[in-house]
Amino acid sequence: MSDAPKHQLKIENLHVSVGDKPILRGVNLTMGHGQTHALMGPNGSGKSTLGLAIMGHPGYEVTDGSILLDGEDVLEMEPNERARAGLFMAFQRPVAIPGVKMADFLRHATTNVRRPDRKEGEDLIPMREFRKELKDKMQHLRMDVEFARRYVNDGFSGGEMKRAEILQLAMLQPKFAILDETDSGLDADAVRLASESIADIGGREKMGLLIITHHDKLLEHNPPEFTHVMLGGRIVETGGKELAEELHRSGYDRIRTAYPEAEARNQEMLNEETAV
């Protein structure tokens, strides 16, 4: 469809606290339809917090600001409503759910996301139809179909967890996906495979991608239209692809020097993290 709706995710002046500790202090970020944004920044700057706040983690309290998806107030939604509205996060460290097979988990998830009005207890996508689609997707991602029979993230290696998250991304086809270090903990080959897969899924499905990463491989395959640098709970600089390249090459020294106030807050947050 050429006149498919254009999606937009708009984050304005977002303040987020964990307990009574402010982490995000006024984040502004607008993602357009199918755009790729890189979110970079040193440890403790608030990148994962932004992802978790977008998904509605109960431990992350939004104290000010707004998140709008196609004009709808995301903050009013439960996390499952956000998922059904088209938001997705690939977790840095996804939890295990022992005893629940990947295939069963995904069949339920896929049904709920594709049929946002589905009530509890209503039929799931027919097994045969779902299996075929899952098998196709797994072959495309060069995953062993045996994987679908394993319990969700249970005993998965770091690499397997990340690939399982990518498989979910491929099945759920969100409007916007946050990829939280989906390339970390992987060897070079696995990073390349993950990068290609994401590029392939993102490109085909016209997804908006917010890529949190410390590596350049992922961005090589998914060149960002925008690069944001986070420090001390704020986005201090936004540029194009070349900004990501510069940070990979030279690190964050220039940023830290240019934004001393944010750098001080970043150090403060890191210290608090260590203290806890």
Partner: peptide
């Protein structure tokens, strides 16, 4: 939370975890 992020309702999530 993980299951909610994948579109499960809270009841569905708990039921699934218990059955698991």
């Amino acid at each position: 939370f993980y299951a909610l992020c994948r579109g499960f309702t809270r009841n569905e999530a708990v039921r699934m975890i218990v059955i698991g």
